[in-house]
Amino acid sequence: MDFLFEYFSCTALALLSALLLDRWLGEPQSWHPLIWFGNWASRWRNAWQLHPTAPKTLQRLHGVGVWSVAVLPWVALLVLLLWLLPSWLEWLVGTVILYFTIGWQSLREHAIAIAKPLHAQDLPQARAAVGRIVSRDTSALDETQIAKASMESVLENGSDAIFAPIFWFLLLGPAGALLYRLSNTLDAMWGYKTPELLHFGWCAARMDDVLNYLPARLTVLTYALFGNTKRALWCAWHQGRGWKSPNAGPVMAAGAGALQVSLSGAATYFGELQVRPTLGKGPEPKVNDLDQAVRLVDKGVYLWALLILVLL
């Protein structure tokens, strides 16, 4: 019992410390371990990725192998480090790992960088800012489309960049948070249905789907608590399940429903126009709704921190 009390106390302390550190310092500007990891993974991809005309199964096997070599050694190294370190240092390692695997303040800063020029009617600056956080073409977006793209990214990344790493940290400790973040990074790099990545990136995309499944459902409930609860849950269930992503769909639908706006619709990705089903229920969003989306994520973080403090 003493061991469990010490473990949970250490976990709660590390988590709250990491949240405070992230909110205070934000994301490192000059260097981030994930940049180095991305370069590391890209070298393995360049060495082992097959031509898109190779057999599908063989491409997928190479993708599984590269994913494993890129991710698993670092997780194993962290597990070994935690095993060797004295217990009183575990909270410090946990704090540092979680600080580098969450992106709460970074998400807020990106959203604010879009909202400020939108409030000032500076559409070129707002387009440039939203282009830094979405993969769609932003060169011709109007005010409503910018607000819509920004809100979709804020709501989705509330789950991906904040709640999911916290979830895996609570479940598996620092190694769980690291496993999730590295896997999510590879999905962001390789999880696209382009000819080059459709099969090679299959493993990265599926692993991210698996690791995000439970955190995404908890995020749906979190968003629903701080808005129109009935509409948020209805949208997540009836609209989110049919989305191209099994996790992003329910999360964005719940957030849109909670804020009583409509998201999604037509958008251009890699030169191809995609008409996506509507998420949410209400008018199309404006810049003030983007502000509300940031507040929705903030409230969710505060709730999770409070529950962790009380329960652990």
Results as ranks from 00 to 15, higher is better:
224 A>G: 03
135 S>H: 13
243 W>T: 03
17 S>I: 01
19 L>A: 02
306 L>E: 04
112 I>V: 14
236 A>H: 02
235 C>L: 12
263 L>I: 07
83 W>S: 11
286 K>C: 04
232 A>H: 07
177 A>L: 01
250 P>R: 11
74 W>N: 02
2 D>W: 09
291 D>G: 01
267 A>T: 15
206 R>T: 11
113 A>E: 12
83 W>N: 03
55 P>S: 10
163 F>N: 09
118 L>A: 04
154 V>D: 04
122 D>Y: 12
163 F>H: 11
279 L>W: 07
73 P>E: 12
286 K>Y: 05
17 S>F: 11
19 L>G: 07
58 L>D: 08
150 S>H: 04
21 L>T: 01
211 L>T: 05
38 G>Y: 12
266 A>T: 13
300 G>E: 05
53 T>N: 07
86 P>C: 12
181 R>H: 14
170 L>W: 13
296 L>S: 06
277 P>Q: 14
101 T>V: 09
213 Y>S: 02
228 N>H: 13
219 T>F: 00
3 F>E: 15
78 L>N: 12
148 K>Y: 00
303 L>G: 08
85 L>S: 04
172 L>F: 15
36 W>N: 00
48 W>C: 13
2 D>A: 01
180 Y>E: 12
31 W>S: 09
13 L>S: 13
178 L>D: 02
17 S>E: 02
133 I>H: 02
199 H>S: 06
137 D>S: 11
2 D>C: 06
211 L>D: 04
152 E>V: 14
101 T>N: 05
209 D>H: 08
312 L>D: 00
237 W>L: 07
130 V>D: 05
230 K>T: 15
29 Q>V: 09
293 A>G: 01
173 G>Q: 02
20 L>W: 10
273 L>F: 06
88 W>L: 00
109 E>W: 05
249 G>V: 04
176 G>T: 13
123 L>C: 03
248 A>I: 03
48 W>S: 12
229 T>C: 04
248 A>W: 07
225 L>G: 02
65 G>A: 10
4 L>K: 03
272 E>D: 15
175 A>L: 09
207 M>R: 03
212 N>M: 11
295 R>N: 12
247 N>V: 09
218 L>R: 05
257 G>N: 06
100 F>R: 06
121 Q>D: 09
268 T>K: 04
142 D>Y: 13
13 L>F: 14
200 F>H: 11
72 L>F: 15
103 G>P: 06
7 Y>T: 13
224 A>E: 01
308 I>D: 00
65 G>M: 07
223 Y>E: 10
166 I>G: 01
182 L>C: 04
225 L>Q: 13
154 V>I: 15
196 E>Q: 15
295 R>L: 02
303 L>W: 15
188 A>C: 10
168 W>Q: 05
294 V>N: 00
259 L>H: 08
126 A>H: 11
240 G>V: 05
57 T>Q: 05
170 L>E: 08
67 W>M: 10
1 M>W: 13
83 W>K: 06
190 W>T: 08
125 Q>E: 12
227 G>F: 10
233 L>C: 00
60 R>N: 08
139 S>V: 14
46 N>W: 14
152 E>C: 08
51 H>Q: 11
142 D>C: 09
52 P>S: 10
293 A>W: 09
241 R>M: 15
5 F>H: 07
183 S>C: 09
235 C>F: 08
244 K>F: 09
303 L>H: 11
64 V>A: 13
185 T>S: 14
312 L>T: 03
71 V>M: 03
3 F>C: 00
107 L>G: 01
246 P>G: 13
265 G>T: 07
12 A>E: 10
